Simulated scan of single mutants.
Amino acid sequence: MYHPYFRGKQFELITIREMAPLLAEKNFVPVIEPVRESLGGLKKALNAVCIAGGRAIVIVNPFHGDHQEDGASLTGLFENDFCGYDNIAAGILLRSDMTIEEVMACYVDHAEHSPVLIHAGFTAPKELVAKLADDMPNLINVFVEDHAKLLYRKHFVQSTRILLRDGFKRQRNADYPVMEEFSDLHVTYAELGMAGFGDFLTVGDVYSEGGGPAYAVAIHLTFIDPDKDEVMYVYHFVSDTKDTPTDPAGKFAQALAKLIAKLDSGTSNILETEAIQEFRDLHAKGHFPGLGYIKKLSMKHHIETLADYVT
């Protein structure tokens, strides 16, 4: 079903931890690309997933972050902390710079960890399918749509296929439109021959180590429009102040006021999720929880919205 793709920063991992019961209930399977050297937060998130009876995929050869050059500690995580956990799978990220030999070596190393192949630029699908012909009917292949087009995906038709689409068009906060289309994949994935779908939540696939000072603050909230074939859209509530790096709390208050006004208009189509209730509470208290916390609420709302849709 739904596979949200997280980069393993602090608030992404906290989101997984807090949402673990709902993720498990809906059979949603997070894909996690660890980007921080410390694995403490990742272990907490995975333990929460296990306690809830859910599943997760952890990429053992990340392209971004602190484990880019050496994923040995991630392999150790499987061997030492999650050995025998069938619900925590090893994700192998297939990029354009990988050879078939490198893919197979990683696959063999993690054969005991229910390996999942995540296609993000790899260029030899035919050869890979030939190597894994016997395993293919039991394999899960996850395709990042921008890097794995239709002809590429057809090679893996005998497997379980998941399609990930980046619906979030990342740009400077000050430049976001009020609203734009996010994705229709939650409606159309089965017609595309997929067993499930995924996205990069309200963060996007563009990776950055950390933001500089926020000249503008934006709150990104997705919603499903019942009048437009249930396509998902995203609102961008952006602060009016955009020309100074100071006063993020004041800018958040401006963006939040726009969000609350839209909610109270009765025309937003935004689902009244637990995350939205938190936004309402923050508005009532006049409290600024920090930019990371705001991002967490946005991701939480996105997951809750899709969970309601698949009910």
Rank of each mutant, 00 (worst) to 15 (best):
L23N: 02
L23K: 02
L23M: 11
A24D: 04
A24F: 02
A24G: 08
K26L: 12
K26F: 09
K26Q: 14
K26P: 06
N27H: 12
F28N: 03
F28V: 06
V29W: 02
V29C: 14
P30D: 10
V31R: 00
I32S: 08
P34G: 09
V35D: 09
R36Q: 14
R36T: 13
S38Q: 08
S38C: 07
S38T: 07
L39S: 04
G40T: 07
G40V: 08
G40D: 12
G41N: 10
L42A: 08
K44M: 10
A45S: 14
N47S: 07
N47E: 14
A48S: 15
C50L: 15
I51T: 13
A52R: 00
A52Q: 02
G54S: 05
G54V: 04
G54T: 02
G54C: 10
R55G: 13
R55D: 14
A56C: 08
I57C: 04
V58C: 15
I59R: 01
I59D: 00
V60P: 01
F63D: 10
H64P: 00
H67R: 01
Q68R: 15
E69Y: 06
S73P: 00
S73W: 04
L74Q: 06
L74M: 12
G76N: 14
G76W: 02
L77S: 04
F78L: 07
E79K: 06
E79V: 01
N80S: 11
D81P: 00
D81N: 12
C83M: 08
G84R: 00
G84T: 05
D86T: 12
N87T: 13
N87D: 13
I88P: 03
A89L: 12
A90H: 04
G91S: 12
I92E: 07
L94K: 00
R95W: 07
D97I: 03
M98C: 10
I100H: 01
I100M: 06
E101K: 05
E102V: 04
M104Y: 15
Y107M: 07
H110F: 10
A111P: 00
E112D: 15
E112P: 00
H113Y: 15
S114F: 10
S114Y: 09
V116R: 01
L117T: 05
L117Y: 03
H119T: 03
G121M: 07
G121R: 02
T123S: 14
T123Q: 14
A124E: 15
A124Y: 13
K126E: 15
K126C: 12
E127A: 15
E127Q: 09
E127I: 02
V129F: 08
L132T: 04
L132C: 09
L132G: 07
A133D: 11
D134S: 14
D134C: 12
D134L: 13
D134M: 13
M136P: 03
M136S: 11
N138T: 07
N138C: 12
N138W: 06
N138Q: 11
N138V: 04
L139S: 06
I140N: 05
F143W: 05
V144L: 15
E145P: 00
D146M: 08
H147E: 11
L150Y: 10
L150G: 01
K154Y: 06
K154I: 12
K154L: 15
H155T: 01
H155L: 03
H155G: 03
F156C: 02
V157G: 01
